[in-house]
Amino acid sequence: MAVRQMLLQLQRHGYEVQILGATNFDHPRGAGVLQGHGEALKKAVGRFVTLTDESLQHVLLVTASSQRRAMQSGEESIWFMRYRQLLETFKPDLVFTYGGKTLDLLLASEAKQLGIPVAFYLANGNYTQQRFARDLALVLTNSQAAARMYRQRLGIEAVPLGLFVDPAKVVAAESTRQHLLFVNPSLAKGAALVIRLALLLERRRPDIIFEVVESRGAWHETLRQVTEKLGEPRDQLTNVVVTPNTADMRPVYGRARLLLAPSLWWESAGRVVAEALLNGVPVVVTARGGLPEMAGQGGLALQLPKECYRPPYLPELSAVALQPVVDHIEKLFDDASCYEHWCQRARQAASQHDLQCSTDRLVQALRPFLPLR
C-alpha cells in the first residue's frame, strides 16, 4: 500500500512509472484487490495482463496461485525474462523494489549488472542478514526507529521517509466516535491483550463496544485460541462487533473513539496509527519499535515486560497489570473534556504524517539517481 502511494506521488511529480508484478500476494486476503477480474484472469494463467489502478498501469503475470509462496519456478522464469526485457527496452533510471526471496535478490543483481541503481523499501523488522542489501544503491524505510535498528543490527544506512497515507482515502466525512477500534486480530498484533481487555470490560463496562476489523487475522479463531488458554473458552464476546476485511476504512474510522494498536512484534511504523490520527482519533500503542514515534503526542504508549514480545505472543498479564489502560479507556469514554484534549493531541500528531512532506523526502532521496523534475 505504501509503495503504491509512493508511485502515485512520483507520477504526479512528473516521473514516468512502469510496474511489473504478478497476481500473487503474501496473504490470501491480498487477492481482494483483484475482485471483478476473476474470470478474465483464470483464462490468462501464465500470461501477462494489464490492469488499471487510478493513473497507474500494472503489468502482471497471472500465476496459478494467488499465494506468493506457491509461485512456481516456471512462473518465476517467465516473470524474470519479462523483467530483463523491460530493463533493456524501458531503460529505467531506477528500479524500485522490496522483498527478500530469491527472485527479489536476483532482480536487484540483474539491474546492478546493467548499471541501473536499485532502491529498496524496508518496512518491517524481519531482515536479519545483509544479503538483501548487497546490490542496492539506496534503502528507504518508514521510520527513524527502523533506520536506527537496521544501522545497529546490520550496519545498513536507511533513509526514513515517514508514512504514505492519502487522507482522502481514510478520513471519514462524519464521525460518531462510538467504538473502541482494533484492526487485524492476530496474536502478533496484540490480539491476546485486546481479548483480555474485552473480557474485563464485558463485565465492568458492557456499554463500551469493541469493533474488530479483520485483516490477516481472523477474530473468532483467535478468540477461541486465547480464551482456551485462559481456561475460559469463548466463541464470542457480547461487547465485540466484527467487521470483515474492507478496502474502505473511512466508515470504520468514523465510528472509532479510540484505536488500540498494542502490537507485540517489532513494528517499523504502523499505518493504522497514522490513519487514526488523521481522523483525530487518539491511539493506544505498545512502547516498542516505531509505534511510539508514529503516535507521537496523540497516543498512550504501554510499557510491557520483555516476555510479552516473544512468540507465540500470548502474554500472561493480570487484571491489575491491565488496569492503567482500562482506566484510560474509561476516561476517554466518560470525560468529554479529557477526550477532546486527547483528540486535539491526535490532530497535532497527525501533522507528521502529511503526505506531501513524505513525498518531498522521497523525491530528495531519489534525486541523486533520477533526473531533476
Rank of each mutant, 00 (worst) to 15 (best):
A173C: 08
A44Q: 15
R68N: 11
L300W: 15
R361P: 04
A350W: 04
F25Q: 04
G296S: 08
D334S: 15
Q113I: 00
V118N: 08
P262Y: 01
D26T: 12
L264S: 06
L161H: 07
E110H: 07
Q113G: 11
V284K: 09
D335I: 06
D207T: 12
L181A: 06
P92V: 03
G270H: 01
P312I: 00
A218E: 15
Q303K: 13
V165F: 00
A137Y: 05
A349R: 05
G30W: 05
N124W: 10
D360H: 13
P311C: 09
V118D: 06
P282D: 08
H220G: 12
F80Y: 12
L60Y: 02
A261R: 00
W266P: 06
M294T: 12
G38M: 07
L51Y: 11
A108T: 10
D93P: 03
A158E: 11
Q11L: 09
M71Q: 13
V242Y: 01
H220Q: 15
Q225A: 14
G280L: 05
L362T: 04
D360G: 06
L107I: 09
H58E: 15
Q152R: 11
A274S: 13
L161P: 05
R84Y: 03
V62D: 00
Q152T: 11
S263M: 01
R367S: 14
Q18K: 12
V3C: 08
W79N: 06
L138V: 03
T63W: 02
E202C: 07
I116C: 09
A349S: 11
R153E: 11
K189E: 06
V33Q: 13
N24D: 15
L187T: 06
T52V: 10
K43S: 15
F369H: 08
Y15K: 04
V283P: 08
R255E: 11
T97S: 10
L161F: 10
E340D: 12
V281C: 07
A173N: 10
W266S: 12
R255P: 07
G46D: 09
P167V: 01
L223R: 05
E174Q: 14
D166Q: 11
L322W: 05
H341G: 07
F182N: 02
G217Y: 00
T222L: 04
T89K: 14
L372V: 09
S73W: 12
V240K: 04
E39V: 05
G299N: 04
S66Y: 08
V240E: 05
E76N: 10
E16T: 14
Y313V: 00
R84D: 13
E275Q: 13
K91V: 08
Q144T: 12
V325N: 05
A168T: 11
R47H: 14
Q57V: 00
L259P: 01
L264N: 02
G155D: 01
A269K: 08
V283C: 07
R82V: 00
L230N: 01
W219Q: 02
L10M: 07
R224L: 14
E221H: 11
P292N: 03
K91H: 13
H220K: 15
Y127P: 02
T238C: 11
